[in-house]
Amino acid sequence: MTIRSYQVEQLIRDVMDEVAAETGREELGVIEGNTVLSDSGLDSLGFAILVARLEQKTGYDPFSRLPAEQFPHTFSELVAVYQREL
Rank of each mutant, 00 (worst) to 15 (best):
M1Y: 04
T2L: 02
R4I: 13
S5Q: 09
S5Y: 00
Y6F: 12
E9P: 01
E9A: 06
L11N: 03
L11I: 08
D14N: 13
V15E: 05
M16R: 00
M16T: 03
D17A: 14
D17R: 08
A20G: 03
A21D: 07
A21N: 08
T23L: 13
T23G: 10
G24E: 08
E26H: 11
E27C: 12
E27D: 15
E27S: 14
L28R: 06
L28Q: 07
L28C: 10
L28K: 07
L28H: 07
G29E: 11
G29P: 10
V30A: 14
V30D: 14
I31G: 01
E32F: 12
G33F: 00
N34A: 15
T35N: 09
T35S: 13
V36M: 14
L37C: 07
L37G: 03
L37K: 02
L37A: 05
L37Q: 03
S38F: 14
S38A: 15
D39R: 11
D39N: 14
G41W: 09
S44K: 06
S44P: 06
L45E: 06
L45K: 04
L45A: 09
G46K: 05
G46Y: 05
A48F: 12
A48V: 15
I49F: 07
I49R: 08
I49Y: 06
L50P: 03
L50R: 01
V51W: 00
V51T: 12
V51R: 07
A52E: 12
R53A: 09
L54W: 01
L54V: 07
L54Y: 02
L54C: 06
E55N: 09
Q56N: 11
Q56P: 01
Q56L: 12
Q56V: 13
K57S: 09
G59C: 06
Y60I: 15
D61P: 03
P62V: 01
P62L: 00
P62S: 02
F63P: 00
S64N: 12
S64K: 14
R65A: 15
L66P: 06
L66G: 06
L66F: 08
P67K: 13
P67F: 08
P67Y: 08
P67W: 04
E69Q: 13
P72C: 07
P72T: 05
H73R: 15
T74H: 04
F75D: 03
S76N: 11
S76G: 02
S76D: 13
E77A: 06
E77H: 01
V79L: 09
V79S: 04
A80K: 09
V81S: 04
V81E: 07
Y82W: 13
R84G: 11
L86N: 11
L86W: 14
